[in-house]
């Protein structure tokens, strides 16, 4: 980790004295597009979960004539719009992994074949089980977070987008672009009803991710040696002490 730390600070300090220039306390981690994407996704996923929940279990019946109401229509419209935004954002985020800084790739490529990576995952696990007194410093995500991000978020969102557009293709009809791209998902799961069920299970998967993600972010912000929440707002990672990791 100290390597990448030095790389990050390299531009700001003299390379020959990297051991001493650890006083460096702020690193620019999340570039503006990543931060924008993060908060757009937060907003859209909340909309998707709420509207999705009520698509499966609609609100109590609306009074009055059908012509005066369009509640379910609006809920579904909001769901599909947020679905499009999340998807376009996700594609944009993948693009940014190619052109952004090294941290922009962490989300998609946890170093699953590196021994050091797994050692640090072990360290983080011990830290979360209260077996490790002092946490390590990380500029980007810690390895455990990278793993969780990859499996819960990247896989989870891909699943939701693919199943979501498969369901969407049913409304768009045979031969539509979403039918051609995603229509094959439906027989893969059995039938439309099964895709609905799995899409809904996927929502709970995402909800569990959100719960854990928010908790860990707040906890780490308080207990670890670096900033988290403000980093996703301003982009800069602050370190709370000057000791090596």
């Amino acid at each position: 980790m100290s390597d990448s730390l030095n790389q990050q600070t390299g531009g700001l300090s003299d390379n020959s004295e990297t051991q001493i220039t650890r006083r460096q306390t702020a690193v620019y981690v999340y570039e503006a597009p990543v931060r924008l994407w993060h908060w757009v996704t937060v907003f859209s996923v909340i909309v998707l979960c709420v509207t999705g929940f009520f698509i499966g279990r609609p609100l109590p019946t609306m009074p009055g004539e059908a012509i005066d109401n369009y509640l379910m229509g609006y809920i579904r419209f909001a769901h599909f719009t947020a679905g499009y935004i999340v998807t376009i954002g996700f594609i944009g985020r993948i693009y940014w992994a190619f052109v952004g800084n090294s941290h922009s790739r962490e989300l998609f490529l946890p170093k699953l074949f590196s021994g050091k990576f797994w050692k640090e995952v072990g360290h983080e696990l011990r830290w979360y089980f209260f077996l490790e007194r002092v946490p390590k410093k990380y500029v980007g995500h810690n390895p455990l977070a990278q793993l969780a991000m990859f499996f819960f978020f990247v896989i989870g969102m891909t699943f939701m987008i693919v199943t979501g557009f498969a369901l969407y293709s049913e409304g768009m009809g045979h031969g539509s672009w979403s039918d051609q791209l995603f229509g094959w998902i439906i027989p893969l799961f059995g039938q439309s009803q099964d895709v609905h069920t799995w899409h809904r299970l996927g929502m709970w998967f995402i909800i569990v991710f959100i719960m854990t993600h928010v908790y860990v972010a707040i906890r780490e912000d308080i207990m670890s040696r670096q900033s988290l929440i403000s980093t996703m707002v301003g982009g800069w990672r602050m370190f709370k002490d000057d000791r090596p990791d």
Partner: peptide, 18 residues
Amino acid sequence: SNADEIGTAVAGGVGAAI
């Protein structure tokens, strides 16, 4: 059980753990 029964059980468990 349906998706919501499974989902609330898991989310409840995770919530308690948190």
